[in-house]
Design a protein around this nucleic acid. Structure first.
Length: 452
DNA sequence: TAGATGAGTATTGACCCTAT
DNA sequence: ATAGGGTCAATACTCATCTA
């Protein structure tokens, strides 16, 4: 069977993984209060990563998230088959029975997963009733309710009309009613108290954090600055999972030397300054062993802001990755790529969404305008040729090339207009319309002599 | 052995919430 | 208002296994 394949998660472990995931309602119970609690999610993911590492030692949070998404996607697919078979009015015997072995294990996702948190709060009583009607109570349901009820702080109001504070609570939550004679202020205090009860006592990390805080305060002069820098370096390496037992920072736990980066200051304004993180220094012909080493000033560790012009240049080069090299937009979300970008101090990598919805459309618009401008200024007449094809994915593409001769007949310029290059990342096939528009525009100006 | 099927992965857009 | 982050659904794809 497929689950025996080396790449697949062992069944026993996957069962445990799903059960663990189920126990962390903050990850899937969208209507619960804790669903929006980032700290609880972080802790939950840590546990899940720990579990998943039994199968894949290199697993991280990303791995786990992808795994969960895959499980949910498959479950949803199977569920939709069941529902569609029910809708079709088929007899009980014809209702689709999923063969997905863990389909039942993911049933807890049903009926709450696919509805986004609503601000319109229905009566909780009704919701509970509905829940009970929809599913047979099981031992796991009992466990789940207990799991939810324990940590969830009470929410304000129980009549659904005072929903200003909240996303609707879970249908399975039994919210305590407001005590009589309790003023709103009392209630806030009460809620805060309940919240505090939910807080964990200091764990070893928090205790260590306080210790570091205390020690940093006790350092004199610029020593605290140096100490913070070194701590930041180590944390940064840890985030990159680059720490080892024998880890040393860039210069063997020694503050990097000013002389190692002195050349940066002599370069032009367009040069990207040295990243404000330390890395192992690669020996080079110019880095002699007997060089006089001087300690860098604290100012050299302050990230240098890049100018907006520099940012635009970097952005433009970044877009080349997508429009020229056809890399997926998701590359900006990949840890390794972000690791590289961290070497550009002061530069904030735009999100995938920003790239797709703002930057690429702007680039496209700019490109079109440049072409229009060039043709209108220099071309006497334009010949358009086009090539259309369909990819293996059954997506349609079209490239248009404009050929034109300038007024002096001194040279011939050919402009290749791959107008829809960037759309190859999406699922749009609107290329035909746009090409048509370009052609019409040239003809309207009396410049289009051939179009084929 | 080729095609069908199952399981998992990669990518993207949409939606919602939050921070600035 | 805008951008970023988190989440989810949809889709296409790869790979392994099953089956006729």
């Amino acid at each position: 069977m497929a689950e025996n394949a080396s790449k697949q998660t062992p069944r026993e472990l996957l069962i445990e993984f799903i059960e663990l995931y189920r126990s962390f309602t903050c990850l899937w119970l969208v209507k619960s209060k804790e669903y929006s609690d980032r700290n609880k999610k972080d802790l939950a993911y840590i546990e899940l990563v720990k579990k998943f590492k039994e199968f894949d030692p290199s697993a991280d949070r990303n791995t786990v998230v992808k795994k969960i998404n895959a499980l949910r996607t498959v479950y949803k697919k199977e569920l939709s088959k069941v529902k569609s078979s029910e809708k079709s009015g088929a007899g009980a015997d014809d209702i689709y029975k999923p063969s997905l072995w863990y389909f039942d294990l993911l049933h807890f996702l049903n009926d709450q997963d696919f509805a986004r948190p609503s601000r319109n709060t229905m009566s909780d009583v009704d919701a509970v009733t509905q829940q009970d009607e929809d599913s047979e109570p099981t031992d796991q349901d009992y466990f789940q309710r207990r799991e939810i009820n324990t940590p969830a702080p009470p929410t304000s109001g129980d009549d659904g009309s005072s929903a200003s504070t909240s996303v609707a609570a879970s249908p399975m939550l039994s919210r305590p009613k407001r005590k009589k004679n309790m003023t709103p202020a009392d209630e806030v205090i009460h809620l805060a108290g309940e919240q505090l009860k939910c807080l964990r006592p200091d764990d070893e990390f928090e205790a260590f954090g306080k210790y570091i805080t205390h020690k940093l305060r006790s350092l004199k002069g610029n020593q605290s600055g140096f100490a913070r820098k070194l701590i930041n370096d180590v944390i940064f390496e840890g985030e990159l999972e680059a720490l080892t037992k024998d880890f040393k920072n860039s210069s063997g736990s020694v503050i990097p030397l000013e002389s190692e980066t002195a050349s940066i200051n002599t370069e032009s304004a367009e040069t990207i300054p040295e990243p404000n993180v330390s890395v192992p220094v690669i020996p080079s012909a110019s880095s002699g062993q007997n060089r006089v080493k001087r300690q860098r000033t604290i100012g050299s560790y302050i990230a240098k802001e890049i100018t907006s012009h520099q940012k635009n240049l970097i952005d433009r080069d970044l877009l080349d990755l997508f429009v020229k090299e056809f890399h997926p937009l998701s590359i900006v979300e990949e840890p390794s790529f972000r690791k590289v970008i961290k070497w550009i101090p002061g530069y904030e990598l735009p999100s995938r969404k920003t790239i797709s919805t703002t930057m690429i459309p702007a680039l496209y618009q700019s490109y079109v305008e440049n072409v229009r401008d060039l043709v209108s200024r220099e071309a006497i007449s334009v010949c358009l040729t086009t090539d259309c094809w369909t990819s293996a994915n059954n997506e349609n593409y079209m490239a248009t090339t404009a050929h034109f001769i300038t007024e002096g007949f001194t040279f011939k310029t050919i402009i290749e207009m791959l107008l829809f290059k960037w759309e190859s990342y999406g699922r749009s096939s609107r290329g035909g319309d746009k090409k048509y528009n370009i052609g019409m525009e040239f003809r309207g100006k009396g410049k289009l002599c051939y179009f084929g």
